Amino acid sequence: MVSSSRQKPLVDFFIVGAMKSGTSSLRDLLRQHDGVDIYRGEIHYFDKETLFEQGDDWYHDHFEMDKSGVLHGDKSPSYSLDKDAPARIHAYNPEARLIWIFRNPVKRAVSNFHHAKKRNQEAMSLESSLAQAEELAAKNSPAAYLFRSQYERHLAAFAEHFSAERQYIMIFEELLADPAAETRKLLNWLGLPNDVELELPHSNEGRSVIKRKFPVAPDTVAQLEELLQPTVDAIETRLGRPIPSWS
């Protein structure tokens, strides 16, 4: 559990990533807890310049800031991808707690591709994206499917401002396998009562019709596996244990 001596009410924790890794399901799970006030959508306060310029009072209007005895939370996985967000969050609340939920990076990249196609069937192909990976990453392009699965790069950006103690890593597949146990561990880290029953919803599930219309070739999956093996190694090293569901 991370202690805090702060008196001024601020947003306490942020679900910062990764997109297409169960962040919406995790948010909706935490919304069931009486000790949590978490906004139902994504605010994008710290990664959208026009919104950040609105100021903290505008931001706080999204929460019940006058409600005592609760933790206020913000789920915006786009924060993990924006170069300015880590410093902005730290300046806003240097005692903030960050929650990461990571999915098998290959499956996340494929899911990201299908999500893009669901939104726009003219979205860049996975193969074209891999051919331009670093260029797309530098621009934080929505088509940077590989970069968005390179979790170690996102962690490194936040490590410049937040210690490892203030960052909690969950594995999506482990949450699915044992929601009760994984939820208890997270609630304990947040300092919340963990003797409650919370249901893990399945939010933002992909559409099978899109997956059938835009299948991913085995050779492309194999290329992703090779490119993302360093990510698997980095997260296993960070956790100090293997992640069997990613093997």
Rank of each mutant, 00 (worst) to 15 (best):
L136V: 02
F172I: 00
T23G: 02
E135K: 12
P86H: 12
P179K: 01
L51W: 11
P9F: 14
A222E: 14
H154A: 15
E135Y: 09
N120L: 08
L51T: 05
H62P: 07
V11S: 01
Y79L: 10
V209W: 04
L10W: 05
I99Y: 00
K213I: 10
A18F: 02
F52V: 10
P105S: 11
M65C: 03
L26G: 04
G73E: 07
V16N: 01
L187I: 02
I169E: 02
Y39F: 15
G22S: 09
M170H: 04
G191A: 00
Y168V: 09
E226S: 10
R40S: 13
H72P: 01
A116N: 12
A96W: 04
I169D: 03
T237W: 03
G55H: 12
R148S: 05
L192G: 02
D28M: 11
M124N: 09
E49P: 08
I43E: 09
D195N: 14
H60L: 10
Y151D: 06
E165D: 15
V106A: 12
L198S: 10
A138C: 12
G22M: 10
R207M: 13
S149P: 01
A109Q: 00
K185G: 06
S125G: 15
F172V: 02
R241L: 06
S129A: 12
